Amino acid sequence: MLNDVKKLIRRVVEVQSRLERLFACGEVMDVDPATHCVKLVLRGYDNVQTDWLPVLTSRAVDVKVYALPTIGEQCWALFLPFSGMEKGLVLGATFNRQDTTPTSNAAQTWIQFEDGTHFYYDQAQHHCELNMPAGTLVVTAPETTINSNVTINGNTQINGNTNMDGTLDATGNIHSDADISDATRAMSDDRGIYNAHDHDKNVPPPSNQQ
């Protein structure tokens, strides 16, 4: 009888220990980009190293969301209760004193990258911003519509047709491989009008052609 009680106590202690390790925080020690998996080292559990753990994502079929934590990032994982702490699922990362939040404004939603590129929307101010310190931004679509006035503080290269219903302010050069026209006529028509002007005879250009 006493032996049975001791076995039961040991079993309860073992189950309790496993349940305590069901949910644990670890540090990413390796990543597998092809499978969207990471390995964790569990500092609070004698530095146990896990097997490859899949990282939870919101969508994986048809619509795919891909974002791996980086090496050294703090993540929380859920482990199978009776298979040790080598097998489980990474639920996500958390901020801490070293890896702080990119903003202290609760009205803002942020995505920030290691090179300093960041995108955020402030729903209180109705302000959306994409900031890239370096690199190239490419938008590819059959058609793009911008329903606002546009300000461009650099040079502009236009390789296709562009229709604008608002105002375009540019502080740099504008180059187009196609014709540029307004509500009256195209620039090529203007060139035809003014190139026909005879400078030698000081004949003024037509002023009433539409």
Results as ranks from 00 to 15, higher is better:
165 D>Q: 09
185 R>P: 01
164 M>W: 04
188 S>R: 13
127 H>M: 01
99 D>K: 13
140 T>I: 09
204 P>H: 15
137 L>W: 10
6 K>S: 02
206 P>D: 06
117 T>H: 04
171 T>Y: 06
177 D>G: 04
83 S>W: 01
110 W>K: 10
145 T>D: 10
37 C>W: 02
188 S>G: 09
119 F>I: 07
138 V>C: 04
174 I>R: 14
130 L>P: 04
112 Q>S: 14
192 G>I: 14
178 A>S: 10
196 A>I: 04
175 H>G: 13
81 P>Q: 01
106 A>N: 13
25 C>N: 14
29 M>R: 13
109 T>G: 02
2 L>R: 05
156 T>W: 07
44 G>Y: 02
186 A>Q: 05
69 P>K: 07
79 F>K: 09
72 G>A: 04
130 L>N: 03
107 A>K: 11
124 A>I: 01
48 V>T: 12
104 S>L: 11
195 N>F: 09
3 N>P: 00
111 I>Y: 10
66 Y>C: 04
25 C>F: 15
126 H>K: 00
39 K>S: 12
94 T>G: 15
150 V>H: 04
32 D>Q: 09
83 S>Y: 02
1 M>C: 00
38 V>G: 09
60 A>M: 08
108 Q>C: 09
30 D>L: 10
54 P>E: 14
6 K>N: 03
59 R>A: 14
171 T>S: 13
127 H>I: 00
35 T>F: 08
72 G>C: 08
96 N>P: 10
200 D>F: 05
210 Q>C: 04
133 P>C: 00
32 D>W: 05
110 W>E: 01
54 P>I: 00
199 H>A: 08
134 A>E: 12
129 E>R: 12
19 L>Q: 08
210 Q>D: 07
164 M>P: 03
203 V>R: 14
192 G>N: 15
66 Y>D: 14
145 T>C: 05
99 D>Q: 12
27 E>C: 06
25 C>L: 13
84 G>T: 05
118 H>P: 02
201 K>N: 14
132 M>G: 00
108 Q>I: 10
108 Q>P: 02
119 F>T: 01
98 Q>L: 06
155 N>P: 06
21 R>W: 00
128 C>V: 02
124 A>R: 07
23 F>S: 07
194 Y>D: 01
3 N>L: 12
8 L>N: 05
86 E>A: 15
29 M>Q: 12
132 M>T: 00
9 I>W: 04
31 V>N: 07
181 S>A: 13
33 P>W: 08
195 N>D: 11
52 W>D: 09
146 I>G: 03
159 N>P: 01
128 C>H: 08
37 C>P: 06
209 Q>V: 13
167 T>M: 11
197 H>N: 00
45 Y>S: 03
20 E>T: 05
122 D>H: 08
89 L>S: 12
121 Y>S: 14
83 S>R: 10
152 I>V: 10
94 T>I: 15
74 Q>E: 08
202 N>Y: 00
118 H>R: 15
52 W>A: 08
102 P>R: 14
37 C>L: 01
186 A>K: 11
209 Q>W: 11
148 S>R: 07
194 Y>E: 02
9 I>C: 06
135 G>D: 07
84 G>K: 09
171 T>W: 08
125 Q>R: 05
113 F>T: 03
179 D>R: 06
19 L>V: 15
169 D>W: 00
152 I>H: 03
150 V>Q: 14
19 L>D: 01
